[in-house]
């Protein structure tokens, strides 16, 4: 976005018409001077191809002085407003601008989108657990549940050997170091190395623990989503009410919406001609 002045417009005008710069500048000055004159005289100036300038009164209003909390009155004034004509922008230009904005928005949302993707993969990994829960609900799937359970056990087994495998890898290192260096000074080094190895194992275990936890928390997400989607589906459906003996429209409105304000809307929607006598059993559409 550039900040232009009247000079840029005058230059564009000169380039388009071939008029002298002096004439163009005079035209530009007269254009806005006459607008001001018109505003002073009538309060309204209409210009073909541009829009309407109007002089509007702004009423005086009370405000509070930010520094000392005193009430002050901001005096009323006259304001110039501008209402452009409807076709002020070409359609092609509008779409170009909208596309630009969309691109910007896309660039902004790119980073969060990537995060979401990684989250999704986590959900898929832990999907086995959620899958079992949902399968148990259906009666046919006992076998499938067993198979799935076996899968989970296998997966669990895979995890534990991995833990065990890591431990031996690191401890032998420490032991070999012990055997090689028998000196007192090196003894300290060995202790330090042992400490580091222990810390490393702790971190590995902690990471796995946290990973499991985050997996659990993500499991809840897919369960919640369908619940949110359900009301969306039901919104477009038309609500109905079957009329019973002793019902009257205000009562129905109060029951359904909590207020009797919707009576007129019900009458309009059902094209009721006489609201005082409606047959029992008629199905009313609710707005």
């Amino acid at each position: 976005m550039e900040k232009l002045t009247i000079q840029n417009i005058v230059d564009a005008f000169v380039a388009q018409t071939g008029a002298s710069k002096k004439v163009a500048e005079g035209l530009g000055r007269a254009f806005f001077d006459v607008i001001i004159e018109g505003l002073k005289e009538d309060g309204v100036v209409k210009i073909n191809g541009l829009g309407t300038f109007k002089l509007v009164n702004v009423a005086p209003r009370e405000s509070v002085n930010v520094n000392n909390g005193e009430r002050i009155v901001i005096e009323g004034y006259k304001k110039v407003t501008f209402a452009p004509i409807d076709s002020v922008a070409d359609v092609s230009e509008v779409t170009a601008v909208v596309q630009k904005k969309a691109k910007k928005d896309a660039a902004k949302t790119k980073k969060p989108a990537e995060k979401k993707e990684t989250k999704k993969t986590v959900v898929e990994d832990s999907g086995q657990f959620g899958g079992i829960d949902s399968l148990i609900a259906t009666p046919e799937s006992a076998k499938v549940v067993k198979k799935a359970a076996e899968k989970v056990e296998k997966a669990a087994e895979k995890v534990t050997p991995a833990k065990q495998a890591e431990k031996p890898v690191e401890t032998p290192k420490a032991e070999t170091v012990k055997k090689e260096d028998g000196n007192k000074n090196n003894g300290k080094l060995v202790k330090a190395l042992l400490c580091i190895a222990a810390v490393a194992i702790c971190i590995l275990l902690a990471v796995k623990f946290c990973g499991g936890r985050s997996g659990e928390s993500e499991e809840a997400a897919p369960v919640e989503k369908p619940v949110v989607e359900q009301p969306k589906d039901t919104v477009p459906e038309q609500k109905t009410y079957v009329l019973q003996r002793g019902d009257f429209l205000a009562k129905i409105s109060r029951e359904v919406y909590g207020t009797a304000d919707s009576v007129n809307a019900i009458i309009r929607l059902n094209k009721i001609t006489n609201p005082d006598s409606i047959e029992v059993g008629t199905v009313l559409l609710m707005p």
């Binding site: 976005m1 840029n8 005008f13 388009q16 035209l27 210009i47 002020v88």
Partner: peptide, 18 residues
């Protein structure tokens, strides 16, 4: 022509100070 020159600049995303 003058109004078109003004509007085309504004539509292009520039601000025109008078």
């Amino acid at each position: 022509v003058f109004v078109q020159a003004l509007l085309s600049q504004v539509n292009a995303g520039n601000s025109v100070t008078i």
